[in-house]
Amino acid sequence: MSLLAIFEQALNGMIVSSFYALAALGLAIIFGVLRVVNFAHGEFYMLGGYAYFMALSALGLPPVLGLVVAAAALAIFGALVEWLLIRPVYDGRADRPEEYSIMITFALSILLLNLANSLFGPWPRRPEPLFRGRIEIGELIVSGDRLAAAGVAVILITALLLGLRYTWTGRAVRAVSQNREAAEIFGISVTRVGMLAFAVGAALAGLAGALMGPVFNVVPPMGVIPVIKAYVIVVLGGLGSIPGAIIGAIILGQVESFATILIPDPSRALAYKDAYGLVLLIAILLLRPQGLFGTQDRRA
């Protein structure tokens, strides 16, 4: 393999990683604060894609505002879901909170998938991308819509990390992730932070869907595969760990990018592409369930 081809695969891997990271960060924040794995995250991603599509086609907004609409719509939706369905997990109303949280989010994902199928139909839609054309970096040629989407993803991730680190709200979110009881004693409203975390997580999934929609089409099952990748990433990095989610995304992007071109039979390599991450997921859970950056004390 030539050096150029290696660079090309590495760059492709980095672009894909940035989308993966955006979706995985949402899962990580939700798990960190609420200790709930959101099995409906892929459908939040899909709804983000549709919100973006509707904002552009029905309201005629420019793509940048479309992103804002997708983020806002999913944040409101996420807050509603938290209020109506997730709250029994930690206020003592559910008998077996963990079992309840798994089943309710899984059931929600099936509901949203079928709802999208009924409302929007099974046809793929292709909304206007942020940016058209190609960009040449030396001899490398990258399609502009992907690079622009990846750039926006990186900016959003940076903004999120800064927000978590320096704002009072971000500190509250991290405090609740680290120790719920202590955070409550210090006067943080755990309920409000939980709702905020779910809204932010949903908005991040929606943004990822809105950014990817123009690249890979908007269809009802579009979230099924990305969300499985997001699970792999958060498990790889340690559930609930923010830096873990980012490094996990970079690792998975590169693994997938290079593993595909190393398998000779192209049709079979393509069919098995999505299985690498799953094998990785099982291997991590069996060998190091706390992930690369998770804490040891938690029971897997």
Binding site: V37, F39, E98, I228, Y272, D274, L278, L286, P289, A300
Partner: peptide, 26 residues
């Protein structure tokens, strides 16, 4: 999966299920 519980077990079984489905397709 003896050591796994709850959501971790859910994720692992999803992975096994999808690997089975992908293999049957491929």
């Amino acid at each position: 999966t003896l050591r796994l519980h709850g959501a971790y077990l859910g994720l692992t079984t999803i992975a096994f299920a999808e690997i089975l489905r992908i293999t049957a397709t491929a």
